[in-house]
């Protein structure tokens, strides 16, 4: 199925959770934050949060800024 990841179309397998997505992005265990359809998904809920067709997912991290 297709989701929108950071503004771009992205294919994930049916039934994939946020944890699965982060593993696929090689971001498992990294310091990132996830927003699903404009709501924050706390880290503790990543394994129990399945993705659906058309979901809009943002994965962010901290970078240099002033």
């Amino acid at each position: 199925m297709r989701i929108q990841l950071n503004g771009e179309p992205f294919e994930v397998s049916d039934g994939a959770t946020i944890t699965d997505l982060l593993e696929r992005l090689e971001l498992a265990g990294r310091r990132v934050a996830v927003e699903l359809n404009l709501d924050i998904v706390p880290r503790s809920q990543h394994p129990a949060t399945p993705l659906k067709e058309g979901d809009r997912v943002e994965v962010v991290h901290a970078i240099g800024g002033g």
Binding site: V59, H61, G66
Partner: peptide
């Protein structure tokens, strides 16, 4: 220490360590 929040595919060289590994939240108020 201030930081910016950005999409993971933006603004970081994959060979560079994560900013928060270098500027640790244990040592600095982020």
């Amino acid at each position: 220490v201030t930081v910016a929040v950005r999409r993971t595919n933006i603004g970081q060289n994959p060979d560079e360590p994560n900013l928060l590994d270098v500027i640790s939240p244990d040592r600095y108020t982020i």
